[in-house]
């Protein structure tokens, strides 16, 4: 407007006249012009959209969807692999634990066997010693009994002799034996 051309001023005057008249929107003389340019605009936008923009955006969106789907599949696969790896790890762990248990059990069994053998040996020795001791004790006892018999026989002979008799060795020993048997019973 400020181009101070005559035409510009005229345009301002025309504009003011139109403004005085009320709504410029109801000035029907401008309608063919606006409708003409609007139709051109709409056709241009329609062709730009339907030929260029919309197919391109649609393809980009579809591509992105594919990429996301693929990535999700890959992620699923990786997850599966991770699960498998964990299973393998758990299995290895369980194997190792079983092996360790087995080794421990073996060692324990070995030690037990050694222990048993040693115990058996010791027991046998102890039994042998006990038997020996018993034998010795039995010997001692037999000796002692024999000694008692002897003493008793001798004493009985002496006593018989002292009493003036003549003791028969056989008779005395039989009497002592009978007496001892009586006592022992």
């Amino acid at each position: 407007m400020a181009e101070n051309t005559k035409a510009g001023e005229e345009a301002v005057k025309a504009a003011e006249a139109a403004a005085e008249a009320g709504m410029p929107q109801l000035d029907f003389s401008t309608y063919p012009n606006q409708i003409f340019w609007l139709l051109i605009t709409l056709v241009v936008i329609y062709f730009v959209l339907s030929r260029l923009a919309l197919p391109r955006i649609a393809s980009v969106l579809a591509e992105r969807q594919d990429t996301i789907t693929n990535d999700l599949a890959a992620a699923e696969e990786l997850k599966q692999k991770a699960v498998e790896a964990e299973e393998a790890y758990q299995k290895a762990l369980a194997d190792a634990r079983a092996e360790a248990n087995r080794i421990v059990a073996e060692a324990k069994a070995e030690i037990q066997a050694d222990l048993d053998a040693a115990t058996a040996k010791a027991e046998a020795e102890i039994a042998a010693k006990a038997a020996e001791s018993e034998k010795a004790i039995a010997e001692i006892r037999a000796n002692a009994l024999e000694a008692v018999k002897q003493v008793a026989r001798d004493t009985a002979k002496e006593i018989v002799a002292a009493l003036g008799g003549k003791a028969d060795a056989r008779t005395v020993s039989a009497a002592v034996n009978a007496r001892l048997k009586e006592l022992g019973s």
């Binding site: 181009e3 005229e10 345009a11 025309a14 504009a15 003011e16 709504m23 410029p24 929107q25 000035d27």
Partner: peptide, 14 residues
Amino acid sequence: PMKQFVVKPLFGGK
């Protein structure tokens, strides 16, 4: 307020 809606030719002229 309605003056802004006037349809003016772009290169002058009536």
